[in-house]
């Protein structure tokens, strides 16, 4: 079994002395895991940071095996946000959420594109908190836990309306949206009791920015 694809790093955990277990969101093969030999080395560790894009080749004897990835660096997206705390927190939260919520090996080209577009927006657009909240709202719907957009507690910008123009109103709307999606997210996680510490740090940071 083998295939080649492009993917976005969700997480990489050291395995043994030199290898790493990599989780990526690929374009054609969904969320996928594999062993990267030498993935814990100094040269490879920088490539395997959450949010970075990779060219991947996966190989295993049987399809149900973990398999091994051969990786080549694509766009080092995370380097651009490493020094910006809120954007970095958003990158980490988005990767953590995809890693915790999406099923493994279920191809979802639309989901991959939406995730990639979100990372691009976080990297380059000042209105990224709005995009992040909309992405979480859409992710819940894609996972089968859609929130009724006509509900009284749903901020209008999640129901297709424009986000508030003034920064204070916009931040308040984003906080309300994240509170709402945050209340529904545990249902969508594979482990309902799983905590999302990176997301909690993002929400905390946005709350402190607005206060």
């Amino acid at each position: 079994m083998q295939w080649s694809d492009t993917g976005i790093v969700l997480s990489a955990r050291k395995h043994g002395e030199t290898s790493a277990i990599l989780h990526v969101l690929t374009e054609q093969h969904g969320r996928h895991a594999g062993l990267v030999r030498g993935g814990a080395s100094r040269t490879r560790r920088g490539i395997l940071q959450p949010g970075n894009e990779l060219s991947l080749a996966w190989r295993a004897r049987l399809s149900e095996h973990l398999g091994t990835f051969t990786v080549e660096a694509g766009r080092a997206r995370v380097a651009a946000v490493l020094h910006e705390p809120a954007r970095l927190a958003a990158f980490a939260a988005a990767c953590e959420l995809v890693d915790s919520a999406l099923p493994e090996r279920v191809p979802d080209v639309t989901g991959h594109r939406a995730f990639r577009a979100l990372l691009e927006t976080i990297e380059s657009d000042d209105a990224w908190p709005i995009a992040y909240a909309r992405w979480e709202f859409a992710l819940l719907a894609a996972l089968g836990y859609a929130i009724d957009p006509t509900g009284a507690d749903v901020p209008p910008f999640l129901a297709g309306q424009q986000a508030p123009d003034d920064p204070r109103g916009r931040t308040a709307a984003v906080r309300a949206a994240l509170d709402l999606t945050g209340a529904h997210l545990p249902n969508a996680l594979a482990d309902h009791k799983a905590r999302l510490p990176a997301r909690a740090r993002l929400v905390d940071r946005l709350a402190r920015q607005s206060s």
Partner: peptide, 14 residues
Amino acid sequence: ATVEGQTTAHYIAD
């Protein structure tokens, strides 16, 4: 200069 390293640095700076 990793996501975890810089997240920790930002947390401490806060």
